[in-house]
């Protein structure tokens, strides 16, 4: 109900917002470097006889940014866009906007594993505060985050006799005894023509900027530590990606040099 109310406000305010966004986008989308950069580029051309700005590879436009807030909001559509550019988005805005509920072979409790040790989950247990990358180990060094192999589950669970007889763990050991992998279903499934790279995002935000891993994973995956079976929280549409890629982000934890994600089609599309 409150969504419908909000939408009607959006409709009213949108008229003004639309004008603003026209003026906005002409500057916000402008990828051309300032003219000082051109002069430097021209100098580089003369020096090397080649066509590169070879000296300025990692210097990207933008200066020091303020310490980031933890919340990165999904893309906001104004009503003009909603009606003419993305009518489905407008219709979807009346629903809960989450991805489909995927039924997994074992209802994996993310909250029990990754949840905050101080917080009591709906099932009355606290979380274990395990790092996401303990199980999704490939996230920091490859394209895909990776689903842990069954032996990783067993590796811990054979030493936890207290939960051994609970239905989910019994099922887990059935797979193990049968020597079969668990047929997990994909929740965050991107189209085939998209190349999303976990490594670069994790390296930049967790290891270079030293932001907390839960926050960084949460930019795209939401608060998985409070879910049981993961469900898609963000649209993961191109608008969602670009919204973040056009912002300047610090290159390291000193927050002195900033750069943005690639805005070149061929970087993410294949």
């Amino acid at each position: 109900m409150h969504r419908i109310f909000l939408n009607s406000i959006v409709l009213l305010v949108g008229l003004f917002a639309a004008t603003a966004s026209f003026a906005d986008s002409s500057t916000a989308h402008d990828g051309v470097a300032p003219s000082a950069g051109n002069a430097a580029a021209a100098a580089a051309v003369e020096k090397k006889g080649f066509i590169a700005d070879y000296d300025n590879i990692f210097i990207v436009k933008g200066g020091p940014e303020a310490k980031p807030t933890t919340e990165i909001k999904p893309l906001e559509w104004n009503w003009v866009d909603k009606l003419f550019y993305n009518p489905m988005g407008w219709i979807n805005s009346f629903t809960d906007q989450l991805g489909p509920e995927v039924e997994q072979p074992i209802e994996f409790p993310h909250d029990r594993h990754a949840g905050d040790p101080g917080k009591v989950n709906p099932d009355g247990k606290t979380g274990d505060g395990i790092n996401c990358m303990y199980c999704h180990t490939f996230a920091r060094r490859s394209l895909t985050a990776g689903i842990p192999p069954l032996r990783k589950c067993i590796g811990c669970h054979q030493n936890i006799p207290s939960v051994r007889d609970t239905p989910r763990i019994v099922k887990l050991f059935e797979y193990w005894d049968a020597g079969k992998p668990i047929p997990w279903k994909k929740v965050h499934d991107l189209p085939d023509y998209v190349r999303f790279n976990h490594e670069r995002h994790i390296q930049r935000f967790v290891f270079k900027q030293e932001r907390p891993y839960k926050e960084v994973c949460g930019y795209c995956h939401g608060d998985v530590a409070s879910m049981t079976v993961a469900r898609r929280q963000r649209t993961l549409s191109m608008g969602f990606c670009v919204n973040c890629h056009k912002k300047n982000h610090s290159l390291d934890s000193t927050y002195t040099k900033a750069g943005h994600g690639p805005n070149d089609c061929f970087m993410c599309h294949k």
Partner: peptide, 10 residues
């Protein structure tokens, strides 16, 4: 000589 030089790679 254009506005967008190659960034390190050609």
């Amino acid at each position: 000589g254009g506005a967008k030089p190659h960034m390190g790679y050609k």
